[in-house]
Design a protein around this nucleic acid. Sequence first.
DNA 1: ACAAAAGTGTTGTACGTACACCCATGA
DNA 2: TCATGGGTGTACGTACAACACTTTTGT
Lengths: 235, 235
Amino acid sequence: MMTRTSPEPQSPADATRVAVSTVIFTLRRLPGSDAHQVVLPLVRRTRDPHEGQWALPGGWLDIAESLDAAASRTLAETTGLAPSYLEQLYAFGAVERSPTRVVSIVYWALLRADEITDSTVENVRWFDAADLPQLAFDHNEIVDYALWRLRNKVGYSRIAHGLLAEEFTLAELREVYEAILGRQLDPANFRRQVENSGTLIPTDRFRTGSHRPARLYRYNQDVELADRGPLDSRH
Amino acid sequence: MMTRTSPEPQSPADATRVAVSTVIFTLRRLPGSDAHQVVLPLVRRTRDPHEGQWALPGGWLDIAESLDAAASRTLAETTGLAPSYLEQLYAFGAVERSPTRVVSIVYWALLRADEITDSTVENVRWFDAADLPQLAFDHNEIVDYALWRLRNKVGYSRIAHGLLAEEFTLAELREVYEAILGRQLDPANFRRQVENSGTLIPTDRFRTGSHRPARLYRYNQDVELADRGPLDSRH
DNA sequence: ACAAAAGTGTTGTACGTACACCCATGA
DNA sequence: TCATGGGTGTACGTACAACACTTTTGT
């Protein structure tokens, strides 16, 4: 990428290292309620710096691996999880963010409730995104930004899909939105908005069990959202 | 950023290197018209790989320098330019994007017309963003994505400010929008939209010279756009 | 029958768009 | 005075929020 003469970078002793971390969101049903809260898994650090503190799952970038692949791999290695949605968030590269120079390419991910293997690796714990302890490095900042992106994106894309099973009721979809946005939505208006958006296909199956059965819907794979612009074609 | 035991990365011979590049946009008035076109500076490569091809200005990340600082520095070194707006775009890290492994943190920037020092460095040329030649590496892709971000962002933020002087007429502002969006806008409706947004402060000065004088406006620095969320506080 | 969630109808407000029209200046 | 861009008025359509109302189930 260099475009004019400049010194070769990075002698072996003090090279900049590239790490990849991921903020993984999922929803947890609050006991005795239809409400959900946004939760995310953190890993307890077993070595310095910040030994003992909670941190985002991640690891080093391999020489022969793309950034996306590194995010998936390190996620699996540290937490055993495979997210249903994964997107780059931001590259953090302040000099003082770690004792040694580390540039972190951070991803954010969504996980379906049924994808949570509770038999996960040791040293992993799930935290309420709204009530985090102090984390290692600049990871509190990073989670804040990821939450902001999640809340934004739920408004103009169909990422809620990443938190739901193949078929779902409108009430279930609405509860996802309510959990992410942190406020109640009018069921009647929500229904019309989402119906008119053309992103949902009604099935002829219903969710039964309590009161009047609710129709099940699934997402229309045909609608291109292009919510990542030209980068969408890479998927 | 590592959270569990993993091998130390990057032996000296085959280390991943971190580069920083920038897509810089500015407007150029089309001769004999009020219309503008989006143009950007490219640098001709003087060494392999892709020697002779045009590429985004950039350079290697220094060990003791933040990503933002590296973007500004490499920009000044390669083009002599100092943008009025600078924001991170995306981190590109596909394995095959360069013969040696390079992760590029790409920024995008805006430049005011008066900031273009035409006495720029050798090997720099300005290109119409809509009509680029084949560029080195994956830089065509990158510019496409940057253009997409620019067009998106002009709709919900006041980045047009980055392309205008301190004071400007509504027609000048509208011409910026028209150049970026690539279509004509109704002057009457544009006026009302931007007046109701509260982001503009009318001055008591006027731009004279042709026909009825037009009132000059300036941006209201007080209005927080938060169009980058929690990351805005870093500026 | 009744509670409660599913689903429909109606109304008001806000906002974007189209376009007719008036105003002020240079030539 | 006339052409031209600056600036105002108005009418229509869409979209969303609020909320009353009907439907269908489980108990």
